[in-house]
């Protein structure tokens, strides 16, 4: 069964609802954690995909975000720190009919597991990777993470972090992911729309979810998520559409050489030279990935979405080709190319 068939498959038995994806385990995140909104959004999306519940698996590593599988009433695997993409890769290759999700965080996915993330993405493994980025180590109680800002004061960096942060979207693009997006945990409509496309994408999906940690890094993304400032500080990426933002939609982005800059214009009259988003351009995606608040608005949405053969398809094809060339015959294999007979 390939993924196109899967996408169109009706759910077996009665139609599923959000409740069917809620497990019997008590959710043990801190009250007010951004993870609740993500969990609810995912649980709401899944019934609409038409995929039988038993064919969905959530795999995670270690960290607050990685408790996610326990709260989903699907198959789930809470593995070890940073390694979720490895288990998920083996799972997808051995059982290609499954829709495999990976839930990870900025520490799990970009620090201890950075190498696995690169390789899962560059191989185009058909995984939906959700990276919850709260710019802090939460479960170990408040150390700097690889996405913490330079100079950030945390328990482990009382004088300020001397490490320069990694840019998750740029990292994923450089690794060759075929679907790269960024969303804000609290922007439910936008998040839902991006997540739906992510779920239907065949190949390596990387979604950075900007998420608040109410205990150790409260307000981590308030500039871009707070109601008062979000319209001025974000820009939505829509394929084929110019980059326009602002409460009154009177600002846009255009390129000066390779550098994006803000253009102000009367509302409703955008200039013709605004940058138009193209999900298929790797160069544009990297330029957009490096736009950051406060100099420029932070892009939200789908940076890149292209089609390429997924790893399981390529692997299965080789198996089929080998079978067609030489049907399996175990006795013959054991005998090997050269035998001799010792007579009785």
């Amino acid at each position: 069964m390939n993924d196109e068939e899967l996408t169109g498959l009706p759910a077996s038995g009665p139609m599923l609802t959000r409740k069917d994806f809620v497990s019997d385990q008590l959710v043990r995140w801190c009250p007010g954690c951004g993870d609740f909104a993500i969990l609810a959004t995912v649980q709401k999306l899944l019934p609409s995909l038409g995929i039988p519940r038993e064919n969905i698996v959530f795999v995670s590593g270690i960290g607050c975000s990685s408790r996610f599988p326990y709260y989903m009433n699907t198959y789930g695997f809470h593995s070890i720190h940073g390694r979720a993409p490895t288990f998920a890769t083996g799972l997808k290759l051995s059982n290609p009919k499954l829709q495999v999700w990976v839930v990870t965080g900025d520490g799990d996915g970009l620090s201890i597991g950075g190498n696995h993330l690169i390789h899962a993405l560059r191989r185009n493994v058909d995984l939906k990777i959700l990276l919850f980025n709260n710019k802090i180590y939460g479960l170990t109680k408040g150390q700097a993470s690889p996405t913490s800002e330079f100079g950030k004061k945390t328990k482990s960096t009382p004088q300020g972090s001397v490490d320069f942060p990694v840019n998750p979207v740029s990292f994923a693009l450089a690794s060759g992911a075929t679907f790269v997006a960024r969303v804000i945990d609290t922007d439910i409509p936008h998040f839902s729309a991006v997540l739906e496309r992510a779920a239907k994408h065949k190949g390596s999906v990387f979604v950075e979810i900007l998420q608040n940690c109410i205990v150790f890094n409260d307000g981590a993304w308030s500039d871009v998520s707070a109601k008062a400032t979000r319209d001025e500080n974000n820009v939505d990426l829509r394929h084929g559409q110019p980059l326009v933002f602002g409460k009154d939609r009177d600002k846009g982005i255009r390129l000066k050489g390779f550098t994006p800059e803000i253009v102000q214009f009367p509302a409703g009259q955008p200039p013709k030279d605004l940058l138009v988003h193209d999900e298929t351009s790797p160069v544009l995606a990297q330029i957009l990935a490096h736009m950051d608040h406060p100099e420029l608005p932070l892009p939200q949405g789908i940076f890149r979405a292209v089609q390429a053969p997924a790893l399981h398809e390529l692997v299965d094809k080789q198996v089929e080709q080998a079978r067609a060339a030489a049907p399996p015959d175990l006795q013959r294999l054991l005998r090997g190319p050269e035998t001799w007979t010792v007579a009785a």
């Binding site: 490895t86 083996g90 799972l91 696995h116």
Partner: peptide, 17 residues
């Protein structure tokens, strides 16, 4: 795999599958 850890991780994932 990309390293020894990924190699065993993938094998365990395959067993789970």
């Amino acid at each position: 795999a990309e390293d020894e850890i990924a190699a065993v991780g993938a094998a365990i994932g395959a067993s789970f599958g």
